[in-house]
Simulated scan of single mutants.
Amino acid sequence: MAKAKFYYDSDTLSYQPIEKNTKIVLRNTILYVFAIFLVGLIGFVAFSAILKSPSERATLKELNNLKFNYELLEKRMEESDAILQEIQQRDNNVYRVIFEAKPISDDERSAGFGGVNRYKNLDGFKNSELVKEATKKMDVLAKRLVIQSKSLDEIVKLAKNKSEMLASIPAIQPVANKDLKRMASGYGIRIHPIYKTRRMHWGMDFSAPQGTNIYATGDGVVKTAKKSRKGFGNHVVINHGFGYETTYGHMSTFYVRAGQKVKRGDLIGLVGSTGSSTAPHLHYEVKKGNQKLNPVYFYHNDLTPEEYEAMLVLSSQENQSLD
């Protein structure tokens, strides 16, 4: 039995028992229980935050590991990209220049990744953007590596054929210096001898006596050997390979046939004035791919520096061509 509690009443000068208030007791009890519950809830939340479940800990560890590996992958891709860029620069500016191969443009190296959503299957995941970005970078890097690999294969092939290429490139004059009267006209805008208008002259005119020897300027295969009364008249076209072709126009006659192999310096015909020509001469053109080039840049095998300098001066004069 609980002990009774008393208080001293100064009015009656006696001790009176303390009467219990039910409402107060109930209120105190509720507050006490609520305080205990609140403290317990706070403790549970704090405890749960500190001590996660095994599944949550495993998931968190996996996520942190994923982020770490992604950062590592990102760094390695950046390093690989820098190395690949260096190789691409050397490929375009050194290797392809040496072997006279066309540089590969940036558009060609990175083409093929626009338009269609290639990564739609990666949508809908918690880290979709992260995964998609990494996958895209890997795809672009892989594409550039494939293109560069093919380019290096081409360079290796060109290197193996270097001696053949050097022999094939047109590198001498088609008419020997001792047989030349003069350099009649060069590559560029010239006055047409018949129409008297300024037109593009796509080759060089070598003025020489009728019947002067004409030589193949590089190894190759005769593509065309045709007689005609128009245009270039009797003319020969030689395919030298490696994208090079040479044309020899206005011949009086030629000694080769289509499909015949020739070597640099072989006699292929004689100077004449057939077709649209106003005097005996050889009209000579050099073409690389689909572009006609100035032949004067290809006479490096049989001219001294002084002769080559004089040739440059003569070929640059804007005069009247002979065809």
Rank of each mutant, 00 (worst) to 15 (best):
I18Q: 11
D219V: 03
P209F: 02
S316Q: 14
K181C: 00
A35R: 06
V140R: 12
L141M: 14
P280M: 12
E19H: 11
P280Q: 10
N161H: 06
Q291I: 15
Y187V: 03
R229V: 07
Q16K: 15
P170H: 01
Y32Q: 13
D9M: 11
R190H: 04
K132H: 08
K102P: 03
Y284Q: 08
K23W: 08
M183N: 01
N64F: 14
E133L: 12
Y70H: 11
S10G: 10
K132R: 15
L270K: 14
A82G: 11
S321G: 15
I189Q: 06
D106E: 09
A35P: 05
G115F: 02
L180V: 01
K132S: 06
I172R: 00
P209M: 04
L303S: 00
E306N: 07
L66F: 13
G40K: 06
V237R: 00
M183H: 00
V39G: 14
D323E: 12
D106P: 01
L73Y: 09
E307G: 03
N319Y: 10
Y215M: 05
N127I: 07
D9E: 09
Y248M: 01
A82M: 14
I36Q: 13
T59V: 10
L60N: 11
N65V: 04
D106K: 08
R118Q: 04
K226R: 15
V140D: 08
L51N: 13
K227T: 12
S315E: 10
N294A: 09
R27P: 02
Y284M: 12
E108H: 05
E164V: 11
F298S: 01
A159R: 06
L293K: 12
H201C: 03
L270F: 09
G265N: 05
N301E: 09
